[in-house]
Structures are given as structure tokens and as C-alpha cells.
Design a protein around this nucleic acid. Structure first.
Lengths: 220, 220
DNA sequence: GTTTGTGAAACGATTCACAGCT
DNA sequence: AGCTGTGAATCGTTTCACAAAC
């Protein structure tokens, strides 16, 4: 098969979200140009992204909204439901538990773990928080682990998650994780995004003052 | 003027986090290879990233941890503190408020807004939730707006944020935002990350080849 | 000896442009 | 006519490789 970049997959998710919205609004057909405009990319990009997986459009007409929706759901593996375990019942964990949108998209949080004995046994959104010590056994049948523990604990937790044969991890700890090649990891790092904004702000200011436009001295 | 990619800036943040950790552990000197290994990238990438901003190392020796730390803080604009407003006091907002790490990195949440009259006036982590209607006036002096409102409300909020002359936005709404060119936007989209994991899982099952990836994990 | 800084090469992703359907 | 699908061209990023510095 072919190699598909992560950015293509990310865009497919964005396309799918728009299509779902349009379908609810009764739109039945859509051209790549309009899809691109609404998703912040280009028509050629849309067509190239889709071309990795097949041909879904009708020349002269565009794409059928329900058909493309189904195709994207299939490509992204959203035709089934995924069993998700949340590890770490702190603030981030609480926000995730409450965020019902995940369930709507096919991700069911079916287990919650925490290392704090004071939290273990309490009920949370209909789930009883389990002991961290039970991770290995209780992760049977789990597809995706959400790691929402402090950075210092993350690698240890991940090692145990991997040992339990979970092959996908959504990581909220601001740290690099070592995992075997067959395990997929996505990291959400809000501090990093904020620092990107900080850079943009100072850089805009520096650029306006043209401080950086001075030619570099001859290099040695 | 130099053009630096967003991935370079993201990596600089990662380098800085490691350096801060190493400095606390008393490490004084570090070579690009070791920095790269600990951050999941390559030595050449580290040196190229830094080279956009100057020369910071000593040949034959490596980098001074405190000096490079200071340099990175300067590049990323972290030598000052930033005034952040949180718009939307729901679950995500609550998690962000509680996440003290932002403050430690120089980002102070100094105002909170919500559209729900039941929430307005309540105190939250030492801040009184303000009326959404007061956004325009109360955003004076704010550097960064965190948008944590439903997708359907996000563009409207963003328009008002931009009108209030805020030039950086951290967006948690799963929707495309239109902003003028001089406004920087970073989006955090957890559903999208989960769908990326879903794709990885079904794709592995389908026996397809690996997705091209960024600073992937795993090395030995 | 070691390690940096950097042009040049290699690689990967995006955009172009047009043939081929509807 | 309008729009897709795709090879070719372009653009940007990463890796290579080595001279210069310590």
C-alpha cells in the first residue's frame, strides 16, 4: 500500500467534521473547492488527500456528501467503536471525562485509573476509579490509553500500557515517550502551543521594528 | 528577514523543557547529539534549528546548559510574562485554570469570561467570571485569548477578540477560524488526535505500511 | 580527538496544470 | 460547460558531510 502523511490524515478528520455538519444541514453534493475553502486548504490538496484512498468524486459534479462521509469514516476506522482507558484522574482527566464529544465520535471511556488512594473507588461519570496497581490486568481489551499523569510518571505508565498490549496512546504529559514501533502515540501539549504564540507575538514586534533585517556578518 | 518553520519553533520549546530539567539536575554542558536523543530528533536537526537564530555552541564541547536555556527563552519570548484571558468557563476552561504549569512558564490567566449568566460573578481560582458582553472592553491589555467555547460560538468570539486587538489565540474549538493575517492562532483538537490513533489502529490491522512520521518515538 | 555550523543533497509535501469524465 | 484525478513541477524541510574551531 501507499505511504500517507500524518497531515493528510489530520485533514481527512477535518473534512469529515465539515461533511457531518453539512449532511445535517441537508447538503447533498460538494465540490473540492468548496470543501477546501471551508476547511482552510486548497482544492488540489483535497483531491490529492482523497486520491491516496480511492476515487470518490464525480467529474463535473463533485462529491456526494453521504458517500464521502461514509468513505472517510471507513478510512479513519470510525465505523466501529473504540474502548478507551483514562489513566490519571486529575484536572485534565476530569475535563476529558466530561467531554461527551468523544463518545459521539466513537470513543468510549470504559475505565479510569489513578495512583492516588484517596481517589480510587470513587465514582466518576458512572465509572469507578481503579487502582493504578491493577493497570496490567484491567487493560485487557482496551484499544487506546489516554495518559493524563504528571510528566515524571508518564514513561513508567506508558511502559506498563505497552506491556498490556495497548497499541495507541494519547499523551497529555509534556515529555518524550519511548514506545516500540508498533505503538502509535499522539501528544497534546498545550504549553508548547502557548510558547508558539509567544514566539509569534515577540517576532511580530521584532519584525515591525526590523531588528532582524540587518544583514548577517560574513560567515567564517 | 529569516523565515523559521513552526516545527522548528515547536522543537525549540521541547529543547527548552529538557534544558530546564537538566539545569535543575546540575548538568552544565550538553552536545547536540545528546540533546537530540533526549528530545526524539537528530543532532543535525538540533544544530540547524539553532542556526536560524545564531551560534550558541562551542566546537568540540557542545552547549552551555544555562546559556542555551537563556537564549531559547529569549527567542521564544519567555523573558516576559504574558497576560492571558480565558473565554469559556466550561470543563476545558476549568482544567486550564487548574493547570498551574502555565503560570510557571510565564502565562498568567488574568481574566475569565462566560456567556452563561449562572456562572458570571462566581469566583474561580481567585478570579471572578466576567460577562461575555464585556469582552471588548475587558480585553484591554490582554496578549493571548484562550477560546474554550462550543464550536458554533467560536468564530463569533474570535471576531470580537480580534476587534479588541488581541493578536494571539489558543483555540480549543474543533472548527476553522478566520482571522486577519497579523493574528496568530494555534488549535488544540483532541478529537482529531484520537481519529489519528483510530486510523493507525485500523491501518496496522489492515497490514498497510507505516505512516510517514514526525519525530517518532522509539530508539535504542 | 571532539563537536559545531552550514552549504549541498535528499527527501517529502504541496501546488500546478491538464487530460479525461460527466 | 464543470470538476475530478494525477503526473510533473515547485517548494520547504530534513539529512548529509565536512571544514573550521576548540
Amino acid at each position: 500500500m501507499k505511504k500517507v502523511s500524518e497531515s493528510t490524515i489530520a485533514r481527512l478528520s477535518v473534512y469529515l467534521r465539515l461533511l457531518t455538519e453539512l449532511a445535517a444541514a441537508g447538503v447533498t453534493t460538494l465540490a473540492s473547492g468548496e470543501l477546501a475553502r471551508r476547511c482552510g486548504t486548497s482544492a488540489a490538496q483535497v483531491r490529492k488527500d482523497l486520491s491516496f484512498f480511492g476515487t470518490f468524486g464525480k467529474r463535473g459534479l463533485g462529491y456526494s456528501v453521504p458517500e464521502l462521509t461514509e468513505a472517510l469514516r471507513g478510512i479513519l476506522g470510525l465505523e466501529r467503536r473504540w474502548r478507551v482507558a483514562l489513566i490519571g484522574a486529575g484536572k485534565i482527566g476530569a475535563a476529558l471525562m466530561a467531554y461527551q464529544d468523544f463518545r459521539r465520535q466513537g470513543f468510549d471511556i470504559v475505565a479510569v485509573f489513578d495512583a492516588d488512594p484517596a481517589r480510587v473507588g470513587t465514582e466518576w461519570q458512572g465509572l469507578v476509579i481503579q487502582r493504578d496497581a491493577d493497570l496490567e490486568t484491567s487493560l485487557q481489551g482496551i484499544d487506546i490509553a489516554i495518559v493524563a499523569v504528571p510528566a515524571s510518571a508518564a514513561q513508567g505508565v506508558v511502559n506498563r500500557v505497552v506491556a498490556a498490549d495497548v497499541r495507541a496512546i494519547l499523551n497529555f504529559a509534556p515529555t518524550k515517550l519511548d514506545v516500540p514501533e508498533h505503538v502509535a502515540v499522539k501528544t497534546v501539549n498545550m504549553a508548547l502551543e502557548l510558547e508558539g504564540l509567544s514566539y509569534a507575538l515577540v517576532n511580530e514586534a521584532r519584525g515591525a521594528r526590523r531588528v532582524t533585517s540587518r544583514p548577517a556578518a560574513s560567515r567564517g
